[in-house]
Computed example of a mutant assay.
Amino acid sequence: MIQFQKTFKTEEACHQHLYKLKWPEGFHCPECQHHKAYEIKTRSCHYTNVQIVVIKRR
């Protein structure tokens, strides 16, 4: 846990790392491959309005 906290000093830093792991070449909608999204806690495809999250919560 200490190493994790050293690597990711903020929640935003962790979020950006997970984002880059999920979309290494930038965001795209899994439904239509569109690249525009609204900036919210989840991602919403600009074209289909499908909600996409960086990680799924259980």
Rank of each mutant, 00 (worst) to 15 (best):
V54C: 08
Q3K: 09
F8K: 00
T48L: 05
K22N: 07
Q16T: 08
R43Y: 14
E11N: 09
K20A: 07
H35P: 06
I2C: 06
Q51G: 04
Q5M: 04
V54N: 14
I2D: 04
K36H: 15
W23Y: 12
S44M: 09
I52C: 04
R58S: 07
Q3C: 09
H17Y: 13
N49K: 12
R58D: 11
Y19L: 06
I55L: 05
H28K: 15
G26W: 09
M1R: 06
Y19P: 00
M1V: 11
K41Y: 14
S44T: 13
C14M: 08
T10P: 00
H46G: 11
I40K: 08
R57N: 13
E11C: 04
F27P: 01
S44E: 13
C14L: 10
I55N: 06
K9R: 09
Q16V: 09
Q33Y: 13
P24R: 04
F4N: 07
H46Y: 12
F8P: 00
L18Q: 07
T7F: 03
H35L: 14
I52P: 00
T10I: 03
E11V: 08
K56A: 13
V54T: 15
V53N: 05
V53W: 05
H17R: 02
E31G: 11
C29R: 02
T42K: 04
T42A: 13
V50K: 15
Y47T: 14
I40R: 11
E11I: 01
F4K: 14
E39S: 15
T10R: 03
F4V: 10
K41Q: 12
Y19N: 01
N49G: 06
I2E: 08
Q16W: 05
A37G: 06
Q16C: 05
E12A: 10
A13F: 02
R43T: 08
H15W: 11
E31R: 15
L18T: 00
Y19I: 00
E25L: 05
K22D: 03
C29T: 03
E12Y: 07
C45G: 14
L21D: 08
C29I: 03
M1K: 05
G26E: 04
V50D: 04
H17L: 01
F8R: 00
T10E: 01
G26V: 08
E39M: 15
V54K: 01
K20F: 03
K20R: 12
V50M: 11
E25R: 10
R57C: 09
V54G: 08
Y38L: 15
W23I: 00
Q51V: 08
C32V: 07
Q33M: 14
Q51F: 11
R58F: 13
K22F: 03
K6H: 08
C29W: 00
R57Y: 14
I52G: 02
R57G: 09
L21W: 05
C14W: 10
K20D: 04
K6I: 09
L21A: 15
F4Y: 09
S44I: 13
V54S: 12
H28W: 13
I55F: 08
F8M: 01
R43H: 12
A37Y: 14
Y38I: 15
H46I: 13
E11S: 10
